[in-house]
Each structure stands twice: as C-alpha cells, then as structure tokens.
C-alpha cells in the first residue's frame, strides 16, 4: 500500500469531516466535549499520517467548517482555534518526518508532545496579540492551556497512538517500519 497524493487528499477530507462530526457525537455526552477536545484528534492524526501540508490544511479548514455547519466553535474563538489546530497539524507532520527512532510508538509520542507544545505556544502568542489589551492575558491563557486542558492532553496521548495502531491493523494505512515486522 502506498500513500499517494490522491489518497492523502481524501484522508485529509475525511479528517476535516470528522472535525465536524466528532464534536457533534460527543455533544450529547455531558461535558465530554470540553474535557477531551474531540476536534484535536483528527487534526493530529491527519498530520501524523498524511504529512505537514495536509495536516496544516486540516487544522485550518476543520474548525472553520465545524463553525460554519454546527456553530461550534463560535466565531469569537474560531481564529485562535484555527491557529492552534493548524500548528498541531503542521508540527505533527514535520516532526514525524524528522524523528525516526525505529520505534513507531516513540516517534508518535515525540511528535505528538512536541507538536502539542508548539501549537499551544503559537496559539497563546496569537491570543496575546489579538487580545493585546494588557499583560495579564498571557498568564491567564497560558495556565488555561495547560491546566484545564490537562485531561484532554492525557486522553489524546492515549488515544491517538491507539487509533494509529488500529488503522495499521485494519490495513488502512501503511506500516511505518515494514521491515521491522518481517524480521
């Protein structure tokens, strides 16, 4: 199986669709949406699987379409969310390309953690610039990014690699180190 340009494009399209669908699926499960941020997952996966440009696209278009079709996120926080998610998609893709430890799980975790950090820094910076009214904002937003979203971070770190492995087992995406299996 090869990840062709067309295949990457269509997987990206599906991930964008999931950015709209997943938050709706968890909408009825009380508080789940705010706890584990379902829209992050397709974006992170798209970056990991399809690469940086596709991940970037997914991170920009996903929240935009979701906002258009479901009204979530509301327009007021949409720009900051687009910056954050675009950074996730971009950096997971970039780090997946750079990091090659010969162990898939290690690659995944390094890329995910690095991308989550970069995304939060970028989104924080963007927010500080948009709400540039005073010095307080940066601290407020920085703590909110790491403290209140902690359960979400943990769930994402557990879930995203699990999904990657499940997709590999279902032979829907190629193995990262096929030679390792053959031995």
């Amino acid at each position: 199986m090869k990840m062709t340009y067309v295949k990457r494009s269509i997987i990206t399209a599906v991930c964008i669709a999931l950015c709209v669908v997943l938050p709706m699926a968890f909408h009825s499960v009380k508080n789940a949406g705010s706890i584990f941020a379902p829209m992050h997952i397709p974006v992170l996966l798209c970056g990991l699987i399809c690469g940086a440009p596709f991940g970037l696209l997914c991170g920009i278009i996903g929240p935009l379409l979701s906002s258009l079709f479901t009204g979530m996120p509301p327009a007021a926080i949409l720009p900051a969310m687009m910056v954050e998610l675009a950074a996730y998609g971009l950096f997971t893709g970039l780090f997946m390309q750079i990091v090659r430890t010969k162990a898939v799980l290690a690659d995944l975790y390094i890329s995910l953690v690095a991308a989550m950090l970069c995304g939060r820094v970028l989104a924080g910076a963007a927010k500080a610039l948009i709400f540039s009214a005073g010095k307080y904002s940066l601290t407020v937003w920085a703590t909110s990014y790491f403290v209140t979203s902690l359960p979400g971070i943990i769930i994402q770190l557990a879930l995203v690699p699990a999904i990657v492995f499940a997709l590999q087992k279902a032979r829907l995406i190629p193995l990262r180190y096929p030679e390792a299996i053959c031995k």
Binding site: T4, V6, K7, S9, I10, I11, A13, V14, C15, A17, L18, V21, L22, A25, V29, K30, N31, A32, I35, F36, P38, I41, P42, L45, I155, L159, A162, I163, A166, L167, A170, L172, I173
Partner: peptide
C-alpha cells in the same frame, strides 16, 4: 465511565471513515 466510552466510540469511527477514504481514493 465517560473516558471509558471514548475508545469504543472513536476507534470504530476512525476505522470506518478511513475505510471510506480508502475506497474513494
């Protein structure tokens, strides 16, 4: 309980979505 529900829901959704992507591409 909520956290326990996430995996049984999200993994099948992704598999089914990627299967469709695979068929279409």
């Amino acid at each position: 309980h909520k956290a326990e529900c996430v995996i049984p829901l999200v993994i099948p959704i992704f598999i089914s979505a990627f299967r469709r992507a695979d068929e279409l591409s």
